[in-house]
Amino acid sequence: MRQNPSFAMTDVGELRRLVELNPWVTLVSQTDAGLVASHYAVLLDEGRDDLTIVGHVGRPDDLIHSLGEGELLVVVQGAHGYISPGWYADGPNVPTWNFVSAHLTGVPEILSPQENLEVLDRLVARFESGMPQPRLLWEPPNDADYVTKLERGTVGFRLTPTRVVAKRKLSQNRPDEVVETIIAELEAGAGPYADPRLAGEMRRDLDTRKAAR
Rank of each mutant, 00 (worst) to 15 (best):
G47L: 12
P113V: 06
L15K: 04
G70A: 14
N142I: 06
L72R: 05
F127Q: 04
P113Y: 05
R168N: 11
R168A: 15
V147Q: 11
M202I: 03
T10N: 15
E20W: 00
V119P: 02
T162D: 10
L170P: 12
L198I: 14
Q172F: 07
G47F: 07
A89F: 04
L15S: 06
G34Y: 04
L44R: 08
P5L: 11
G70S: 08
V147S: 03
L21C: 04
L27P: 02
K169V: 11
D195I: 09
L159A: 06
A166V: 08
T160R: 02
E185K: 15
G130M: 01
R135Q: 10
G156C: 00
L159P: 08
D50N: 13
A41H: 12
I183C: 03
E46F: 09
A79T: 12
M9L: 15
S84R: 10
Y193M: 11
L35E: 10
P134F: 05
S38E: 09
L44D: 06
F157P: 03
Y88C: 04
L44I: 07
E46H: 13
K167G: 00
R158C: 00
N116G: 14
E201W: 14
V107C: 01
E118R: 12
T26G: 01
Q114C: 01
E115R: 14
G13R: 01
E139I: 02
A37P: 04
R174F: 07
V54W: 07
A41D: 05
M131W: 06
V57I: 06
Q133R: 10
P141V: 10
E201N: 05
V165D: 15
L15E: 08
L117H: 02
S101H: 03
D50T: 04
V75E: 01
W87P: 14
V12R: 06
W24M: 09
G156F: 08
V25A: 13
E128C: 03
Y193F: 09
S66P: 00
D62N: 12
E151I: 00
E115H: 13
Q114D: 15
E118G: 05
L104K: 06
